[in-house]
Design a protein around this nucleic acid. Sequence first.
DNA 1: TCAAAAGTGTTATCATTACACCCATGG
DNA 2: CCATGGGTGTAATGATAACACTTTTGA
Lengths: 239, 239
Amino acid sequence: MPYTYEYPRPSVTVDCVIFGLQESTQLKVLLIQRAHEPFKDAWALPGGFVDMDEDLETAALRELEEETGVRDVFIEQLYSFGQPTRDPRGRVISIAYYALVNLAQHPVKAASDAKTVKWFDVNKLPPLAFDHNEIMEMAINRLQAKVRYQPIGFELLPEKFTLTQLQKLYETILGVEQPLNKRNFRTRILDMGVLKEVGRQEGVAHRPAKLYSFDKDKYEELAKSKYKDLIKRGVDFEI
Amino acid sequence: MPYTYEYPRPSVTVDCVIFGLQESTQLKVLLIQRAHEPFKDAWALPGGFVDMDEDLETAALRELEEETGVRDVFIEQLYSFGQPTRDPRGRVISIAYYALVNLAQHPVKAASDAKTVKWFDVNKLPPLAFDHNEIMEMAINRLQAKVRYQPIGFELLPEKFTLTQLQKLYETILGVEQPLNKRNFRTRILDMGVLKEVGRQEGVAHRPAKLYSFDKDKYEELAKSKYKDLIKRGVDFEI
DNA sequence: TCAAAAGTGTTATCATTACACCCATGG
DNA sequence: CCATGGGTGTAATGATAACACTTTTGA
């Protein structure tokens, strides 16, 4: 290898914060119970060391599947944590990823370094190994911020869904105490123009709801033109 | 060291994208010309290897000062880049940071691994070493997104500034082709309530402008209450 | 008194909020 | 025929955009 440069090197790991939505009403997060020292028996985020020839994202997905059996998720980089004392084994830098999935579609099974795998309610987390509580907190903030301006979450519902299901989903992710106003939620969502009507409910003991699906093409298109608008408007402090 | 775990380890570097505002009208970025292989003589982001006992952020600030002489900046983590082939020396993972500074207050001088240090116009960048063009692109997007909802940039002006100066600054950072509407810019900024009047210009050949300064306390306070509002409102797609 | 930049009035339009009400279905 | 959600009308308020206008200064 040309130009080789030798320094003592930190270890590099990846960690995954996988949020799971259960019945659109409960927000959970996937944790493993560690099988080995350090922090043996403590709960932790799934993750592990990056191999020398794989992408960071690939490493995260591999570790996630190895330890929990969960696969086929869209993860996104969250942040990198590098405090020198965060791992008792020595200098370990960790790149954290996060994702939001439909819990029902992702059965879990413990394996490799994990003793147990479990979905925990986001509001009832145990103390976690390493600095994983800090990572978790950042992930929750990021998820809630993201859900406000990007239609994530649509993939978590059945392909065809009602507006009430969608509203429940938002209320869950945002962790609101009061339900959102139905009228206004609907107006806003429909005015966005990214839902298309695809039928109606059947066999329910009340007025059947219209079913919608997410129109991805429309969304991409809108995202582009909206971007131009923003540029034109210039400033729009939201604080 | 207990629990030591041995794996082959990637190298870890940090890179800094330092944006500099010149006279509130030009957005520049700080590059170094590499003194050594690989990519000898090519332009690159200031950065380098992380020491074993320092924070990532500390490493970024240290490398920035060593290579460019620039110090006392508030950097923020941008993203981590880990494509296995991004560095010909082998596996190198880089954590990128970015910042926006007042160019006039940060004199540069080349040192250590840098042959030359130069501020480049953001719109006239040379081809960069490694994957630094990709890092740069992401940094520009992030900066422009951030400036829309957080009052960064205020620190780049003199302590007392006019609304016209502030508007110019926004126009520069956003890279707009048409100037923003003066009336509306003023209304919006003043309605935020984070500026306080602190005097007026003197000795100018036109009506003297009022001078303002940024009221940080007021901002912190507003940021909190605004956050509560957002929670209450629930959803607010901006796409 | 003029150029230059600062600063203001005003209107039309659109988005947001809040509240009350009607509708369709199965049991 | 009623309980249960689904779905709509509307008015008050506030934010945004667009444009034209007035003010104050030094030279």
